[in-house]
């Protein structure tokens, strides 16, 4: 895009913890370089300056949980040429999608003394349930280097290099001894998408699924392995109901084990 205006980048927040957009500010070494090649046109967490649309790239964090946000996301889509969802909330509904397995009114009354002041949808849903999405970047939180890769690739009109395979491959590449096989530690690595560089096993703990299901997961077969480790059905349900609980492969099996 040499010689042309800088592409405009916008960051939008829905129900989330702000951690994924913080990943952009956590690019301490790259941040000023990034602002040299893209115009930060809308990023309320970092700037009070707002430049109007349309935007070349929108990064969307968070899930849809209120009637207002279900409307707002359509406005964001209309103002955006490319729209990338970032993180488990935006791509799978997030931890707040645990409400999807319960009655939201019960949840409201547990937390708020005056439930009548609260407006919430019955389900927390990913952005792609509402609008077409150009790329979904996984993780709870996302990997900031993957974020730079996706933005860089899409601005240059190439396909982002984001591996869809499982955490297991990252463990093998690092040379981490398998915590599931060697220690019998429950580990979601076999069914979870790579992206964290197999962090948890390198700390002697099992993967807990931050990056959501890998592209072809055998979750039912995996759950059977957990049963062999003597996990009870409710343990298996909890293991699959983390930050990507509402992602279909995890959801279907957790619902089967709940019965």
């Amino acid at each position: 895009m040499a010689g042309k205006r800088k592409p405009k980048l916008a960051v939008w927040k829905f129900a989330s913890c702000d951690g994924c957009q913080l990943s952009l500010l956590d690019c301490e070494d790259e941040l000023l370089a990034v602002t040299g090649v893209v115009e930060i046109a809308n990023f309320p967490e970092a700037s009070r300056r707002v430049v109007g649309g349309p935007y070349d790239i929108s990064l969307v964090e968070g899930s849809i949980t209120t009637p207002h946000d279900a409307e707002r996301i359509h406005r964001v889509r209309r103002a955006s040429k490319l729209l990338i969802t970032i993180g488990a909330c935006a791509t799978a509904g997030g931890i707040q999608a645990l409400r999807n397995f319960a009655d939201v009114d019960d949840f409201i009354s547990i937390v708020y003394p005056s439930p009548q002041y609260i407006t919430a949808l019955a389900k927390s849903t990913p952005i792609s349930d509402h609008i077409p999405v150009d790329f979904e970047l996984r993780g709870c939180p996302i990997n900031k280097y993957q974020l730079l890769e996706v933005v860089g690739a899409l601005l240059n009109g190439r396909k982002p290099n984001i591996p869809p395979y499982s955490v297991c491959l990252e463990c093998k590449r690092r040379g981490t001894v398998c915590v599931l096989v060697a220690q019998g530690t429950p580990c979601l690595g076999p069914v979870t998408q790579a992206g964290c560089n197999a962090l948890c096993p390198s700390y002697n703990r099992g993967c807990y699924g931050c990056f959501g299901p890998q592209d072809s997961p055998n979750v039912a077969g995996f759950a059977a392995v957990l049963e062999q480790l003597n996990l009870r059905h409710d343990d298996i349900v909890r293991a699959l109901r983390g930050f990507n609980a509402f992602a279909e492969p995890f959801r279907k099996v957790s619902e089967a084990y709940e019965k």
């Binding site: 949980t65 707040q96 949840f107 409201i108 919430a120």
Partner: peptide
């Protein structure tokens, strides 16, 4: 404050 509620105290149960 119009941050959408996420109900942590409820789903922790």
């Amino acid at each position: 404050i119009f941050e959408p509620p996420r109900f942590f105290e409820a789903f922790l149960r």
